[in-house]
Design a protein around this nucleic acid. Structure first.
Lengths: 350, 350
DNA sequence: CTGAAAGCGCTTACAG
DNA sequence: CTGAAAGCGCTTACAG
């Protein structure tokens, strides 16, 4: 009487036994089916189905020293930009038949701005993907990822960083042009003849904010716009409402533009203005956001003029660069994707 | 003259050699540091830093038959509900010191509704996590995941399914009460004295839509609301605009409520009404959505009444259930989380 | 406190 | 076309 077959966690040997072949033959059935006689192949497949066998990645990765999958480390997904980056990367990887696996560091600029305690597992997950011997690692980040990347450099080949610019980095980088974001906003209102603007933003605690501010300032100087910078405690509508409450202009003054460093801040301005019928949007106050829903579908009652960020394109570009990095003799690239204005009723009227 | 030390992909043996110990001792330094003499421990750590050594998960997983990480399979993140589920699961896992890794199946109900070709890698990623010997698998799904789960059952212990209800399933399930979503919407407008409603939705191609419709119908019958169901081709504002364009009421008729199966459809109705000043919101037409941004921050010019879905709570609950599933003698749970109405200007005025 | 050795589940030349 | 055997990088009793 033989011991009862334990069906939990069957191994390649269990399959081999069931099919009456050696484990090498089972392996060949999976990896090089053409090498087997058709009847043998079928017997092996039947045994696999029968036992519910699923190959262990561990043994396979161990001997091949590669895992056939890419890792993507993301910040918290409150920020829609990163949702769109993840979607773009995901879709592009899937189109190319690549596996993409994502981990979330928890980094959250909203909470950082509010001074809340901050989780950031970026380095831990970089290490995780290095331990897993990922074939490449993508890091979308709001902060300098250099240290974590340096640590894993001996174990992960191609690395692509998204949304953070490290000068002379030893990897490929995908960015959007955040100075252009700021410039585009100013150009738009200047073209409308507006000569006075508020820039509503958290302080420069993350790179994109600092760069947008730089673009705003430079373009305002160039176009002769009188700029007032208004500091908020966070990135939500209510932060904007709170910061703007005391500084809205009197009716009848010169036309004003309010530029939110992100769309939620712009929306806070709109909410405030809804209770000020004496200030018409956009005739008296034009309102503009600097990162829309990234999908260009204007999901709003009054369509908000905004800068549409190339989130999905950034994700797709990052996947392309992972490939490029893997080519011998590759020179690191630094892709800066352009943004564009989406004009809405909040600045140009219906 | 010894061969040059190759610093790429150092193994535990390279570390052992560099530290002048055996590989078992290096392993103990990592896993049971208290067993080592302090000087030995330090020498090993120095060697690890020096070589940039990162342990291979493959060898470790192979012998331990577990990977110390959880897998989460998600549909496409166009749907904000899933973003919030991912965030809730992520944060909860992180709080408990667990690693959570996510894969995206690409399933997209918008495209499904539009008849576009559909990627769905759900089963592939379930298999991936099984190959990786994940300590548990979470599946957030818009379709029946039974087949994929059955396939991996011999290799993955706890499984929790989020957002899809399979009767008598052999796993834990986390749901929201989608019939309650529909009922809550009708109750709200009935309480406002409205007796006529449009339910604007794609057909019942996914479970949540079918259940919302069921709730809407039952509550409408119970409360004596005259219900008209309007079919859209998709889940975006423009789909709603297209479907509603010909059926908006004449001014002066009985008050109407428009209920969008999701918020974007409701927003489409608002956009249409913006060009019909003869129909006032909410006095003539009240508008309500059925899944908001899930964050309750009303990021809109006219705040939209909506049903706030418990996305983050669902994610956190799923992590709790993964733990519960791992307990011996555990009986599968089926958690149904409640929803609630967020009242906005689109139905109750400012 | 440390080392030698077995073994985890695979894949891959190599014989036959 | 198939099998026997080595080896991937770890961890873990077990001796000493």
């Amino acid at each position: 009487m033989s011991a009862p077959t334990n069906r939990a966690n069957p191994t390649i040997h269990a399959v081999a036994r069931a099919a009456g072949v050696s484990s090498g033959t089972v392996s060949n059935a999976l990896n090089h089916p053409a090498r087997l006689a058709p009847e043998t192949l079928e017997r092996v497949h039947d045994a696999i189905i029968d036992l519910g066998y699923i190959r262990s990645a561990a043994g396979r990765t161990l001997i091949r020293n590669r895992s056939d999958s890419l890792g993507l480390v993301m910040p918290d997904l409150v920020n829609v930009l990163f949702v769109e980056i993840a979607r773009g990367a995901q879709r592009s990887a899937s189109d190319q038949g690549k596996r993409l696996v994502t981990a979330n560091s928890g980094f959250n600029a909203h909470e950082l701005a509010a001074g809340a305690s901050q989780v950031d597992d970026q380095d831990e997950y970089l290490e995780y993907f290095a331990e897993a011997r990922a074939d490449g690692v993508l890091v979308a980040s709001m902060r300098d990822p250099s240290r974590g990347i340096d640590r894993i450099r001996n174990h992960v080949r191609p690395v692509v960083v998204i949304n953070y610019d490290v000068p002379n980095a030893d990897w490929c980088t995908v960015l959007m042009d955040n100075e252009q974001v700021g410039r585009a906003a100013i150009e738009h209102i200047a073209d409308l003849g507006i000569r006075r603007a508020y820039f509503v933003s958290i302080p420069d605690i993350v790179q994109p904010i600092a760069e947008r501010r730089r673009g705003v300032r430079a373009a305002a100087a160039a176009r002769g716009i009188h700029l007032t910078e208004i500091e908020t405690a966070g990135l939500f509508p209510e932060d904007s409402t709170a910061a703007l409450a005391g500084v809205l202009p009197e009716p009848g003054g010169e036309r004003l533009a309010i530029l939110g460093a992100n769309d939620r801040l712009a929306i806070g301005a709109l909410q405030l203005l809804r209770n000020r019928p004496d200030l018409r949007v956009p005739e008296d106050v034009a309102v503009l956001g600097m990162d829309g829903d990234h999908r260009d579908d204007g999901a709003d009652w009054i369509t908000l003029t905004s800068v549409v960020l190339p989130g999905q394109a950034m994700g797709a570009e990052a996947i392309r660069l992972i490939d490029a990095e893997a080519q011998p003799g590759h020179v690191h690239e630094r892709s800066v994707l352009p943004v564009r204005i989406r004009q809405g009723a909040s600045t140009i009227g219906r």
